[in-house]
């Protein structure tokens, strides 16, 4: 049997906080097995040594916020056999996509002492809006075991087993007491994709929606429930407008709650 060259993996960063890349570094015990199974050819967060492409698997963190990045992602795509986006920034535009609903020019003038140094696009967009993406791994940040699942699925050419169901099912498998029913707390779990292991409800907090919309989110049914827990319409809009604000289902939910009733 001919020995196959280990698959070459690259990790790329766009507009992001590095948290998802750190998840890969955080796989302490598993990292040796990962390093055995693949050649980490380009991972600047971990090592300066860079092996030139092409790459068998590119993990892409971050969103596209500049013209330069919009060009660079096309280069990455051209060098990658499989391209997997990781995290809320790469899959939905991240928290920085709040700019999509605001006046970026005004931000630039107000926030920066020398606004002329800042070149930026008016929006923060998911990678799939620029190039073809083979798999999207959600989360802010991504979950370590889901990342390992994606890598091992890639190694044997199968579809990753990453469920798209609600957080509630995981909450119940874990035996949590529902914070909505037992405490009247607001929770995005019923419309959010599982993956985190229902951490927040396990600590008596509602879900914040880090993994973005689940596969069939009925946000219209959840909004009256959120309001029933005491949230104002403005608070409901904010609840949907965090790390996955620009994910289509969450954006539509935000827009469906009347702006008029939010404070000026």
């Amino acid at each position: 049997m001919a020995t196959r060259r280990p698959p070459r993996v690259a990790v790329w960063k766009f507009a992001s906080c590095d948290g998802c890349q750190l998840t890969l570094l955080d796989c302490e015990d598993e990292l040796l097995a990962v390093a055995d199974a693949v050649e980490i050819a380009n991972f600047r967060e971990a090592s300066r040594a860079v092996v030139e492409g092409p790459y068998d698997l590119s993990l892409v963190e971050g969103s596209i916020t500049t013209a330069e990045d919009a060009r660079r992602i096309r280069e990455v795509r051209a060098q990658s056999r499989f391209l997997v986006t990781i995290g809320a920034c790469a899959t939905a535009g991240g928290i920085q996509a709040l700019r999509n609903f605001a006046d970026v020019e005004e931000y630039r003038r107000v926030v920066y002492a020398r606004p002329e140094y800042i070149t930026t696009l008016a929006s923060s967009t998911a990678i799939r809006e620029h190039v073809a993406v083979d798999f999207e791994l959600r989360g802010c940040p991504i979950d370590k075991s889901q990342l390992l699942e994606v890598i091992s699925a890639f190694l044997v050419d199968r579809v990753p087993n990453v469920p798209t169901e609600s957080v509630c099912i995981e909450c119940k498998r874990r035996g949590n007491v529902c914070v909505v029913v037992a405490h009247g707390a607001p929770c995005l779990g019923p419309v959010t994709q599982t993956g985190c292991g229902a951490i927040c409800p396990a600590f008596h907090r509602g879900c914040y929606g880090c993994f973005g919309p689940m596969d069939s989110p009925n946000t219209a049914a959840l909004i009256p429930l959120l309001e029933h827990t005491g949230m104002t319409p403005a608070a409901v809009r904010r609840f949907f407008s965090t790390f996955n604000a620009a994910a289509p289902a969450f954006r539509a939910a935000t827009e469906s709650v009347a702006e008029a009733s939010s404070p000026p």
């Binding site: 609600s166 529902c178 019923p190 049914a221």
Partner: peptide
């Protein structure tokens, strides 16, 4: 219309 398909 009311059901969240949440599985609870």
């Amino acid at each position: 219309r009311r059901c969240l398909s949440c599985t609870n």
